[in-house]
Every structure is written in C-alpha cells, then in structure tokens.
Design a protein around this nucleic acid. Sequence first.
DNA 1: CTTTAGCACTCTTATTTTTCTAGTGCTAAA
DNA 2: TTTAGCACTAGAAAAATAAGAGTGCTAAAG
Lengths: 339, 339
Amino acid sequence: MDERRNNLLKEIVETYIKTAKPVGSKALCSKFNCSSATIRNEMAILEDLGYIEKNHISSGRVPSESGYRYYVQHLMEAEKITGSDMLKLQQIFANNELELSDAITKCMEIISDITNYTSIVLGKSSADNMLLQVNVIALSSNQVVAIVCTDKGNVENKVFTLPDTINIAEVIKTSEIINKMLVGTPINEVSERLEIDVKPVIKRQIRQYETVYNIFYDAFNDFVANNSSVHINGRTKIFEQPEYNDVAELKRLANKLEDVNFIESVAQNHDDENEIKIYIGEESEFDPNVTIIRKKYHINGEDGTIAVIGPKRMDYQRIVSLLEYVDEKLDSRKEQNGK
Amino acid sequence: MDERRNNLLKEIVETYIKTAKPVGSKALCSKFNCSSATIRNEMAILEDLGYIEKNHISSGRVPSESGYRYYVQHLMEAEKITGSDMLKLQQIFANNELELSDAITKCMEIISDITNYTSIVLGKSSADNMLLQVNVIALSSNQVVAIVCTDKGNVENKVFTLPDTINIAEVIKTSEIINKMLVGTPINEVSERLEIDVKPVIKRQIRQYETVYNIFYDAFNDFVANNSSVHINGRTKIFEQPEYNDVAELKRLANKLEDVNFIESVAQNHDDENEIKIYIGEESEFDPNVTIIRKKYHINGEDGTIAVIGPKRMDYQRIVSLLEYVDEKLDSRKEQNGK
DNA sequence: CTTTAGCACTCTTATTTTTCTAGTGCTAAA
DNA sequence: TTTAGCACTAGAAAAATAAGAGTGCTAAAG
C-alpha cells in the first residue's frame, strides 16, 4: 500500500461516509491530478485487496468491512471536535452543577442529537456491589416498601402487600436482622446467604417466617434482575440514515433496538481495555449493518460504558473525537472533585 | 339504519379488521343472500351517511372513523375472551404469587404479545402522593445517596458527591429536620416548602446550608421529574400491522412511540370514567392513524391506566374483552387480599 | 318499491418496454 | 506508468401495456 493508494482509499471511505453513494473514478480525478483510468486501475487493486467492493459490475465503489477497518486503523486522522459540537458539550460541564453521572447521560443525549446516531449509556452495573442497607417503611396497615441500597449507591425498591397474618413489626425486625448479618455481602450472593444464614435465625424469632422471608427474597431478586441502568438515546435517530430507507431493514433494526438486554450485553465491556473501541458490521455482534463505537468510563469507583450505534458508514472521526472529548472532560472534573 | 344496513356495516368493519383490504360488494353477497348490486345500493347509502369510504372511485369500501365509532357503540358484541387468550392470562393469576402491580405489567406484556399491538401500563402517578420519609445513606467519605419515599410507596434515589467542605453528618441532620417538618406534604409542594419553611431553619443549624439545601432541592425535583412509571410493551409489535408497510409511516410512528412523555400524557386518564374508553384516530390525540383503548385500574389506593395502541383497524372486540378480563381478575384478587 | 342483471367506466397494480446514464474493463498508444 | 477511447453493463426512471377488481347507472323483473 503506497501512499497514493492509501490516500485513494481514505478518499473513497470519506466520500462514501459523506454522500452514502457509491464512489466513481471520475469524481476522484481532480483530487489526484490524474485521469479516471488511472484511478480505475488503482481501484481494481484496492478491490483485489478486499478493501472496496462494487454493488454490481458497473457501479462505483463502496468500502468493505475490512476497508473501514483499514481506514480506522491506518488512515483516519485524530481530530479535535469542531466548534459547534464542542460548544454544545461544553455547556453541560459549564458550571459544574450536574453530578457526573447526569453529565454523562446529557452528553450522550446531545451526541445522538447532533449526529443522528443512537447513543447508549451503560451505567453502573451492580454486579460487584455489596449490600449496604435494607430499609422497610410501612405505608399502611398491610403494605410496606422494601428499599435495598448497595455500597455504590444503587437503589431499588419494591412494594409488598402483607397478608393479615403478618405483622409489620416482624418485617421490620427481619430487616434489622438482615442488616446485621448481611451488610457487605456481594449483592448477587445475598439471596443465597439469606437462605443459608438468615432463614434459620428468623425461623426462631418470627412467627410466619416463611412469608416474611419470601418478601426479602423477592426484593433482592428484583434488585438483581432490574438494577442495570441503560439509557438509549435517539433510538429512531439512526433511522434517518439513508441505509434505512427500507421497510424490512427498518423493522429489523427497530426490533433489535427495543431489546434492552441485548443492547446491554453487546455494549458491555468484557475486557479491560480503556481506549475507544470500534466494532464494524459483523464485529459488532449486534447487527451486520451497524458499527458500534464505545468507550469505558470510570467514575465514583465504578465502570460504565458509553457507546454510539450508527451505520457502518458512520462518521468515525467525529464520533471518536466526541467520545474522547467527553472522556477528557470527565477526567478533569474528577480531579476537581478531589478524589 | 335498518337491521340489514347495520349488519352490512358490521360485516364490512369486521372483514376489514380481519383482512386489511377494502371490502367489495361481491364478497358480501353470500352472507346476505342477495346480489352484489343490492349490496352496492346499500353501500352507497352507508357512504352517504359517512360510515364507509372509498380509497378511489372504483375501490372497495373501508370503514371511516365514524364508521368505527358507530361500530363500537352500536354493533360490536360483548364477548368473553377465547380459550387460548384466557389461558395465557390465567397463568399470571394462577397462584397469587405476584404483587398486583407486577401482575398488571405481565398481563399487558402478554396482551401485546398475542395481539401484535403496543400496550401500556401507566403506573401509579405520584402526583397526589405525600412525602413519607427521606433517607440519607453515606456511601463513602464524600458521597451520599438520598432516598425519597412517599406514602404510596413511590421511591426515587439520587447519588450526590459532596464537596470537601461539607460534612456528611450535616446532610443527615438536615434530612432529619426535613422529616420532622415536611412529612405529609404533597410531593410536588415539597420543593416550595423546603425553600420557605426548611431553609430558614437549617440556615441556623448548618454551616454550608446553601449547598446542603441544594442537595435536597435537587433530590425532590428529580423525584417529581422522574417518578412516573410507564411501561411500554411491544413498541415494534404494531409495525407488523400491514398499515405500516411504508417507510415514512413507520418512522413517524416509531418517533412518536419513543416519546414516553407524550405517550404518558395521551394515555393518562383525565376524567373519572371507570369504563373502557376507545379513542379512534383523531380522537386519540396521539396519531390520526391509531386507536387507543384504555381502562383505569385501581389498586392499593392509587389509580393507574392500562392501554393498548393499535391501528384504527384493530380488533376492538378482542382488546375490549382482554382488558375487561384483566380488570375482573384484579378485582377478584383485591377482594381476596381483604382490603 | 326493491332487487337484480348487464354494461360501460375508472382506477390500481403488475409487467414489460424503452431510454438514459454513470460507471466499468480493456486495449493500444503516449 | 499513464491515459484516451470505446464497447459494454446494470440500474433507475419513465412510458406503455395489460389485467382485474370494483363501481355507478339503467332498465327490466319481482
């Protein structure tokens, strides 16, 4: 890959990103001061190398997945974000008034807004949280709300209707026992410990211990099941991209974007990498026709992920620099906050 | 409207609901034992009355909005739900193990599933809730989580990072003051009372009272802003309806279905009616091409709404009977629970 | 007065045909 | 190695054609 060939591929990718139309040889002559025939010769080579493809025998060229791959790894230039993009994000951090977690959410909303892609904030997963406190508050003679709080500040609550045979005082007493015995237990082991350690204890002290036990068992299970914060912004923004001008494609993607669990599992960081990662097409494991760009963030001792889902033909440079900017800002805020 | 004409309209509406294709005169001859010409004569009258319309001069007939209206008010027969639909819903109530609120959610998920419409559960709005308790739990030396709980069991929490100048003890003390002074205050008046009543008090007792005040002010504001439980099930189910075989239409609806606040405001019951209400097309105030059917429910002293969004050509009979069934089941469970 | 057979007419949809164009690959000369 | 030239291709858009479903109207029959 000599320099001209690199430049040619770069030009093809970037033109296609801008126009969404296959790129022909004539359009590139002027940029390279040569004839279309020369470009065609080079293109034929790029095609042999697998970096670009044709839709049909006489069409212009479109980057292939490995073309995009090569582009983001070797050709794309790092760039600071531009004026108007920066301005919008700056405002969020302007007077330090938002909690960091809120600032992140806001940033990703804006990124989705200005780019017409879908953005994701995968908040603090509670997987490695520990139980900090469980509170029971009486609402009425036969209703209580159980509130579970972990050491990282994840909170879930659940309302229970008590049968007549159960006394609220007994429920509260049980919560105190749990607080004494299980504080510091990893949250996903709590159910187990509840059964093994706590159940025998309350059996001796509480009349209808089975029912009371079930309340807390349910509350903790609900916690584990529900406590994941996924924010998906601009789910329909991505539909404005010209590749989705097709009913079947649209429905397919809409369905996938509805499945929060699927999105969560895909966007989740499974490795320890801290840089921005780009998953193109098949690599995304979400859908062969999208690219996912994501970055881990780290606040208040917990990991999270921010990510953008767009077409494979997405503006890689812009997204990368936007995510980098957000990350920088978070870092500088963390330092200000002392910690 | 003599009987035959009524029956004809009923037949047209129901056929169109089933097939999604304009209904022609020939198709109806056999049902009415007469010639297509006779049907055409009657159809012309129904069209004059505004109950059916043609897409173009030589097309079959399609019910108009007032046709559907007339159908649901005068022609639709009340019907119990059928075997397989019933079976699926019955399982939810089978062994009384779910809290009522969870049972409702589950029911609406299933209804969306079996009907291919979108369903909504508008949970307990906290509008008329009163403050029951605010808890502050320390997470670390400079982080707390504030948990707000109302008398109806609505709970929200927010994590705050404290500046070095603030002592957690002061935050907790403030929460105690708030609990003493504001318990029983309607939740949307709490911010105001906090400013007028509480601020002067903590001003005397807390050093950096402004910052501490802001924490609680934010927490309560967040509560009012975030605390509404809207469950939307099968957002993309409705896309399977043949009316959405069109990119523009699909995008339009997808966008509307993303706007949770809009859906909430539309589905909300603004009147005291307790029966099932049907809003056809324009009446829905959501989108001219959908029908919304909704029913108020009432558990644990709070109102909620369940609703189904489908095309105007939706299976009115089936949805009405499904919602009625859910309502019945809820009623019978409430009785069992004593209250 | 109501029903119906018959027929001309209308509009939609699908299919085929035609035309246009952007783009290619290849050859041969510069 | 580059380029001009040319034959060729696939698609997209426009135009033409054909088929079908359905209507309204008229006039006769019940």
